[in-house]
């Protein structure tokens, strides 16, 4: 930046903030429900402080330079917080765009006598603000992605409950699509539970799995083989007719695996191999 405009910006920092705030407060997208006006002011002031300090200290408009790190850090922090708070991309974008407006407004007021300088400076400011907008969006999306990833982890964890149905028999009902990472969680928690409970039989119920492709089948086979290596047996139950069809059409060999149509028949099989009998009690009718 030229020395004049650096001075102007430093001197008029207050004005920039005022313009920016008025832009933001008059915007339709103002979200008083998500952020109070004072907090918004504090956020904005903080950003302007570092930005203007930086503009006055360096001549570089190369945003990859180290001197820009503090600005990027603060802006990134604001964008991520906004993503988590539930701001829309448009609202977050307007936050930065309004700042550009405010800076340009101040510059044009102060150096309107030198149109050439004004043009040059506006271009530079424009370029810097473009960079900052890109960063805003990148971090905003990253924030959103983090939210999604966290939720994915949570879903993966709550959706794999290992149930102890009987002494020595575990059941794990799988609901929803099985992909590699989910099967991993399923497999690990099942095997861990087998060790902890010393259960000899585990039932993997897939009635809630919409489709079985060769990859899923491979994962299932892997789980069964690993269970066997540990010295337990694994039964797969809840195989719907459509799934039986696809499995055969895909040429997947499940002949080494004990499969049952329903959880009930898997349980019956488990009882039998543990030499347990389930009988209807003889009800004695009292006279």
């Amino acid at each position: 930046m030229s020395a004049t405009s650096q001075k102007v910006l430093q001197k008029k920092k207050k004005n920039i903030l005022e313009y920016w705030m008025s832009h933001q407060l008059s915007d339709d997208g103002l979200r008083e429900d998500l952020i109070s006006n004072e907090d918004l002011r504090i956020q904005s002031e903080e950003l302007i402080d570092v930005l203007v300090d930086n503009l006055s200290e360096t001549n570089s408009i190369d945003l990859h330079a180290e001197s820009w790190d503090p600005v990027i850090e603060i802006l990134g922090g604001i964008s991520i917080t906004r993503a988590r708070q539930g701001f829309s991309p448009r609202e977050t974008g307007n936050f930065v765009f309004a700042l550009r407006e405010a800076i340009l407004q101040v510059l044009s007021e102060e150096i309107k006598s030198q149109p050439e300088v004004l043009f040059e400076e506006s271009r530079k400011i424009g370029r810097i603000m473009d960079h900052l907008s890109v960063i805003t969006f990148e971090t905003f999306i990253k924030g959103r992605e983090e939210v999604i990833l966290r939720q994915t982890d949570e879903i993966a964890e709550i959706s794999t409950p290992v149930i102890r149905v009987w002494d020595g028999i575990l059941a794990l009902p799988i609901i929803g699509t099985l992909d590699s990472s989910r099967t991993q969680v399923v497999m690990e928690s099942l095997l861990q539970e087998i060790v902890e409970t010393g259960s000899g039989i585990a039932i993997l119920d897939i009635s809630g799995v919409p489709a079985v492709d060769s990859l899923v089948a491979q994962h299932l086979i892997k789980t069964v083989s690993a269970t066997r290596l540990m010295g337990a047996e694994c039964i797969i139950s809840g195989i719907r007719p459509e799934i039986a069809q696809t499995v055969v059409h895909l040429g997947i060999d499940l002949s080494n695996i004990i499969t049952k149509a329903s959880l009930a028949s898997a349980l019956a099989y488990a009882f039998k191999s543990l030499k347990l009998e389930v009988k209807k009690a003889n009800v004695l009718t009292k006279i």
Binding site: M187, E188, L191, Q192, I194, V195, G198, S199, G200, K222, S225, A226, T227, R228, L229, M230, G231, A232
Partner: peptide, 27 residues
């Protein structure tokens, strides 16, 4: 062979070594 750890069992399967012909038990 008894007491194989879950992580070891999974790794052996992925390695391609199902230890055919070896009997296993939990403990």
């Amino acid at each position: 062979v008894v007491g194989m750890q879950p992580a070891v069992a999974i790794t052996l399967i992925e390695l391609g070594l199902p230890l055919k012909g070896v009997h296993t038990a939990l403990d």
